[in-house]
Simulated scan of single mutants.
Amino acid sequence: MVNTRKRILLVYHSQSGNTEKLARAVSEGACEDGECEVRTLMAFQASLTDLLWADGLLFGTPENFGYMSGALKDFFDRTYYPAEAYALNLPFALFISAGNDGTGAEREIQRIAKGYPLRQVIPTLICQGEIQAAHLENAKTLGQTLAAGLSMGIF
């Protein structure tokens, strides 16, 4: 039997644990209906091979000095040029744990994503301050939405 489950790559970085909490909730949501397989990797562990495996992407980062984490930037640096030949055009969603407003990190990730190319299919989830239950619920919904859209062929 052919595996028809969609594959989601979740790449994130976390230092304080806030983004990791969000990543767990996003992954839980994406796995909930059993229609998608989720590969969750810290940014330093993820590679071009993982990108080529995926049907959809989830990126998570803390906001560091108004920017994405250095680890997520490193992932983009390591995969950007090798990915060019594949014209990925994958759907992605983004979640940010922010001490400020998160818009600097969001803007720069969106700029980089256009070059792969990747296409953002769900508005960015920006969670300000300490992670609360509402943030986790929104993160779970983000994962559910990407998984459902992939499963239904919308994305």
Score class of each variant (00 low, 15 high):
M1P: 13
K6V: 04
L9Q: 02
H13W: 06
T19I: 13
K21W: 05
A23T: 00
A23M: 01
A23H: 01
A23W: 00
R24T: 09
V26H: 00
S27V: 09
G29V: 03
A30L: 04
C31M: 15
C31Y: 11
C31A: 15
E32K: 09
G34S: 07
E35Y: 10
E35Q: 13
T40Q: 12
T40H: 10
L41Y: 06
M42R: 14
F44E: 11
Q45N: 15
A46I: 08
D50S: 11
D50Y: 10
W53H: 10
W53D: 09
L57G: 00
L58S: 01
F59W: 00
F59S: 00
P62K: 07
P62E: 05
E63V: 02
N64E: 12
F65L: 13
F65S: 14
G66E: 12
Y67C: 15
Y67S: 15
Y67D: 15
S69N: 07
G70Y: 05
D74M: 08
R78D: 11
Y81M: 14
Y81K: 15
P82D: 07
Y86R: 03
L88N: 02
F92Y: 08
A93T: 02
L94R: 01
I96L: 03
A98W: 06
D101K: 10
G102W: 01
A105K: 07
E106H: 08
E108C: 14
E108T: 12
I109W: 03
Q110C: 15
A113L: 05
G115T: 12
G115E: 13
G115C: 13
Y116W: 07
P117L: 04
L118V: 05
I126V: 03
C127I: 09
Q128E: 15
G129R: 15
E130G: 14
I131M: 12
Q132M: 13
A139T: 01
T141L: 12
G143V: 00
L146F: 04
G149M: 05
G149H: 02
L150Q: 05
S151F: 09
S151P: 06
M152S: 11
M152A: 11
G153I: 04
I154A: 09
